[in-house]
């Protein structure tokens, strides 16, 4: 099968890759580009461990065909920290023990950032519904929800 050439932007950098037309964006990120921070928990869009943003829209990268990334901007967990500074969500997840095994964590962080980018003042219920597409089997979600609420409050305070 002839490979498809794709030009895209990943975490702000121009990236070109060759892929099979049937490959998912997740497989290309992980297998072709070595960005293994996005995880495959189900391959069917049910667990959210592969969450990335495509032109700032939150998507499951396992449900996107890699050629669909042509001309679009993708952000993954690898692009979340700036230099040696963790994003406030990353920092708070560590401080509040909002992860146990950590396999779902990249997806939760990408999804949480996508929420705060569009809604800096979400209620607990809004956070719970926004993150309902991300499965965590370890934490019971409590500390994850608290971390997102605290970061939202901190960021609002900083923006004043």
């Amino acid at each position: 099968m002839a490979k498809t050439h794709v030009s895209t932007t990943i975490n702000g950098e121009p990236v070109e890759f060759l892929c099979d037309p049937t490959q998912s964006l997740l497989d290309v990120l992980r297998d072709n580009l070595g960005l293994t921070g996005s995880k495959e928990g189900c391959g069917s869009g049910d667990c959210g461990a592969c969450s990335v943003t495509l032109d700032n829209r939150l998507v499951c990268s396992c449900l996107i065909l890699a050629p669909e990334a042509e001309g679009h901007s993708i952000r993954t967990i690898e692009g979340m920290a700036q230099g040696d500074q963790l994003h406030p969500l990353q920092q708070k997840f560590v401080e509040l023990a909002a992860l146990q095994c950590g396999i779902c964590t990249p997806g939760f962080l990408v999804a949480s950032k996508a929420l705060l980018d569009r809604n800096p003042d979400p209620t607990e219920t809004e956070i719970r519904y926004w993150l309902a597409g991300n499965l965590c089997r370890c934490t019971g979600y409590d500390k994850i929800i608290r971390a997102v609420m605290e970061v939202a409050a901190d960021m609002r305070e900083a923006a004043r």
Binding site: R30, L35, T36, G37, S38, K39, E40, T76, I77, E78, M80, A81, L86, Q90, Q91, F93, V94, E95, A97, L99, G102, I103, T105, P106, L109
Partner: peptide, 21 residues
């Protein structure tokens, strides 16, 4: 006490290597 876990930064940045990685 409740210090940050030693593997915290690795696990919030995607750096930690799991089975399929």
């Amino acid at each position: 006490t409740r210090p940050n876990r030693p593997d915290g930064a690795d696990k919030v940045t995607g750096r930690a290597r799991f089975g399929a990685d």
